[in-house]
Design a protein around this nucleic acid. Sequence first.
DNA 1: ATATTTGCAAAGAGTTTGCATCATA
DNA 2: TATGATGCAAACTCTTTGCAAATAT
Lengths: 150, 150
Amino acid sequence: MGQQEVLKTVREVLTKYMEARQMRKTHERYALLEYVYNYDGHFDVDTFYKYLKENGCNVSRATVYNTLEVFLDAGLVRKHHFTDKTAHYEKAYFNKSHDHLIILNEEGEIDEILEFCNPRIESIKSDLEKFMNVKIEDHDLYLYAKKKTK
Amino acid sequence: MGQQEVLKTVREVLTKYMEARQMRKTHERYALLEYVYNYDGHFDVDTFYKYLKENGCNVSRATVYNTLEVFLDAGLVRKHHFTDKTAHYEKAYFNKSHDHLIILNEEGEIDEILEFCNPRIESIKSDLEKFMNVKIEDHDLYLYAKKKTK
DNA sequence: ATATTTGCAAAGAGTTTGCATCATA
DNA sequence: TATGATGCAAACTCTTTGCAAATAT
C-alpha cells in the first residue's frame, strides 16, 4: 500500500472518530496527522514539535500534546514510556504491533530503538487472560540491551 | 527464608557495594533499605516518602531519590515506568524477576498491579540476543488489562 | 451564533541540582 | 579534618491548564 493510500485511510479514520464525537475537524489535526504518518520511527513531543517547525507547520506545543492524545484515543498512534521522562509516540495504523529492543549507551541513555515481532508474546497473553480472568487490551515489551563490542 | 535473614543479606549486599565504591555507609541508606524491604509491592517516590514520614523516618525527598538510584545500581531495587508520570520501584533481591499485569479502570488509571512469571519471555530474549548480536540486560513486559465484569 | 480548539504563557507534577551543613572515614 | 552525603529550596523538564482569540459547525 502506497503512502497516499495510507494517508487517505488514516484521514478517514480520524474523520469518523471526530464526527462520532462531534469534534471539530480542524486543519491542525489533519496537518499533524500527515506529519505523524510521514515521520519514520518513534518520536517524543519535543522532537516532533521541532520537526513541525522546521517543516513550516506552526502549531503550538499545547496543540501537539492535545492532538497526540486525540490520535492515541483514536488508535492512530501508540504511546510508549521506554524510560524516564518523555513519552514516545509512533504511528499505529497499518503499522503492525511490535515490540521494542532498546539499545542503551554506557550512561543508560537511549541510543537506538529497534522493533521486532515474536508470536510467543501472544501465547503469554492468552494464557494470562484465561488464568486471571481479564481482558488484555494491550501490551508493552521492552528489552533493554547493550551493543556487543565484540 | 525469614525476613531477618533477608534484611541481613541485603544489608551485606549494600555494604559491599558501597565499600567497593568508597561510598559512605550512612544511617539513611541502611534505614531506607529496611523500609524498602519491609514495603510490600510497588511504590512511587511520593508514596514511599509519606510512608517513611508516617513511620518516623525523617529523610528528605532528595535523599529518597538519591538512595533509590543507589539501590537500583546495586541491584537492590527495580524501577518501572508503567504509565506516564511517576516511576515505580520494588525490592529486587530475593524477589524473582517477574512481569506485570496492570489492571486499568475505565479511565485508564492504574487500579492494581499483579505479578506473574512466564518462562517464554526468556526464550524471546535469547532469540533476540543471538539474532541482533546484543546483550540484553533487562526487560519489562507490561500487560494492560481490564477486569472482566461478567 | 456559539461553543470547541487554538496559542500563549503560567501553573503543575515529578525529578534533579546547588549549596550550606553534617557526619563518615 | 576532609570529602561525600544530607536537607532544603530553587531550578529544571515535561506536561497540563486558564483564558482570550480564532474558527468550525
